[in-house]
Amino acid sequence: MRIALVLVGFSLFGVPVWSMTRERKPAPAIETVVIATPARQLRVILTFAEPPLSFSLKYLNEVLCEGSAPDREFSCDWKVVVPPEGVDLLLKAAWPPAAPKTAARVEISRDDTVLIDQTFWTESNLVQSVTIPGTNPE
């Protein structure tokens, strides 16, 4: 009976020790999936109700589009990585002094999907921020 108890005791103690000390296969590494934010190819179309004396559309220090009268419609293509916070473009346009109230329309699209379609009315020169939203807005 004692022998049986000793054997059971050794077995109970031995199994966890064996389980802890046995050689194991290395655990499979956790795969880190890095999702690169792809650059987006965007098309920008600017339409003015009255031809501006001059205009520019900028991202930070980069001029994306610029032009002047007599044209009313301008377009440009632009490739950009849009972070989750989005990006701001700066639209500036000037008209002759004492020009009547006018409007500027900004349309930004990707693969024929319109992302931005905004119209700005102004009675003087226009300085306006245009925000392209990010994929994961805050």
């Binding site: 701001d88 700066l90 990010g134």
Partner: peptide, 20 residues
């Protein structure tokens, strides 16, 4: 104040949104 607003819009546009 309108002039100030135009200046402010231009100034803040110097900073990417991710850094705001």
């Amino acid at each position: 104040l309108d002039e100030l607003q135009a200046w402010a819009t231009e100034k803040v546009a110097e900073l990417p949104r991710a850094k705001r």
